[in-house]
Design a protein around this nucleic acid. Structure first.
Lengths: 242, 242
DNA sequence: TTAAAAATTTCATATAGTGAAACAGTAGTA
DNA sequence: TACTACTGTTTCACTATATGAAATTTTTAA
């Protein structure tokens, strides 16, 4: 007896196919996946019932309005622009993240290369302690708000969170507050470094602006200088909009 | 014999639950859904294998990096800022859309209200002919590029697309080109109107900037004036970045 | 209007999915 | 360290659900 479920897997295959190529007919989907037509029809009916797929004139498409991953976000909006000079100077991609509960959500992406696959991270949700963007927000929050977030991290993360992790993260936040920027080498196995600074509005941090690049483009020796440039950029933003 | 698939439905239930509350254990998920533990375990294993769910220290979360709905986008990036004055003036939300194949993707949202649920549309994908943002791009493309998109609309939409629709849409595009802006009252049953203008880069349209508001905030009598204000804003953007 | 193609439903059956229970792993406490 | 309680994972017997072939209905195109 197989460990896992082929029926569920087939259903997910259909979703994946429709994500790549929407507006397909039953016969086309059945052929593309090598599934029997009756089976395919029934799986599609289920997906339509569950509102993951819509069916118009016998053509099936993903129902984007009901994606599981579209989670209402309930904090203040922020919008910024990033000069291309900064991106070119550091050969990095820039991101804006905002806080949502105990996670950070990427709301804007500014790729340096003409490689638009970077936009696929738009809307991504990450626990604050796993991302420089998140840390750069939390570290500059008032202490009482920080505490609330640290408490709630028990429930919202995919990582078991112990008291010692709590203490380590708290110390990490203090360091970030002192330095003025957050650094994340967690993805260091991939040679990627992230540097992020807070964005303020009405004297409160509401978002963060981060750069993601290679160790070469964001060298340890240049982090203070880079963070100052970013701070000037984010200060400009605050002046302009808030 | 049931029309639809209870196994697939149970799998989707799990995804939905994890979307609402991530980082749950097997026992909790099983209890919350009233599913047998073994069954739940196997469904979760399948979801993990298919990379829709990640499992860290026996806690399950949605794997946001592998959402079906995150579709690599392969055209040039664009970034803009929108002055809050424009939003306040019209009491509307602003969007930036970019072209991806025959769809338009929303890459930036600037809500006027402190109601961040608007950000849930970030990343939304809509066929070009169903959205002012899409029309405002296609209408200003070179004719040969337009033709390619019109041809491919056969395959990518959830709506049956006939020759007469082709002709109507082509005429619609000509009108938009003449006027300089695209209007969309398709959602008029909900009292929502969308007005969009193109964003250029190197003398080519690469994106669009649109406003979405009520009939009161975007009155028919004011559309020309508003579109001119938007055009100035998008021209400023072009001057600044391109 | 007709024929072909696609969509939907039916039916027999076997296999995939289910759930109870056994087993293994983990954490906390005395 | 040993024990207990709880959780996670695997096994096994059984049947209900999923499958696929085929019949029927609907849709499409000429």
């Amino acid at each position: 007896m197989a460990t896992s479920s082929s029926t569920l897997r087939n259903g997910l295959k259909i979703l994946k196919l429709l994500a790549q190529h929407s507006g397909q007919s039953l016969t086309t989907i059945s052929k593309n996946l090598g599934l029997n037509k009756s089976t395919t029809f029934r799986l599609l009916e289920t997906l339509v019932e569950e509102k993951q797929v819509k069916k118009i004139d016998h053509l099936y498409s993903l129902d984007h309005t009901n994606s599981f991953l579209k989670k209402p976000i309930s904090i203040d909006p922020v919008s910024i622009s990033v000069s291309r000079d900064i991106l070119k100077q550091f050969n990095t991609t820039a991101y804006v993240g905002i806080l949502s509960s105990t996670n950070v959500v990427i709301t804007q992406v500014f790729p340096v290369k003409n490689d638009f696959s970077e936009f696929s991270v738009l809307g991504n949700i990450t626990p604050v302690h796993l991302s420089a963007l998140g840390k750069a927000i939390v570290a500059f929050l008032p202490k009482d708000k920080q505490e609330i977030i640290l408490e709630n991290l028990h429930y919202d993360i995919g990582t078991k969170y112990t008291l010692s992790d709590h203490t380590i993260f708290q110390k990490n936040l203090n360091v970030i507050e002192e330095k003025g920027y957050a650094l994340d080498d967690e993805e260091s196995s991939l040679g990627v470094r992230c540097l992020a600074v807070p964005i303020y509005r009405n004297h409160q941090v509401v978002a963060s602006l981060g750069l993601s690049g290679s160790f070469e483009s964001l060298p340890r020796t240049g982090l203070v200088r880079i963070s100052k440039i970013l701070m000037r950029s984010s200060q400009q933003i605050t002046n302009e909009f808030f």
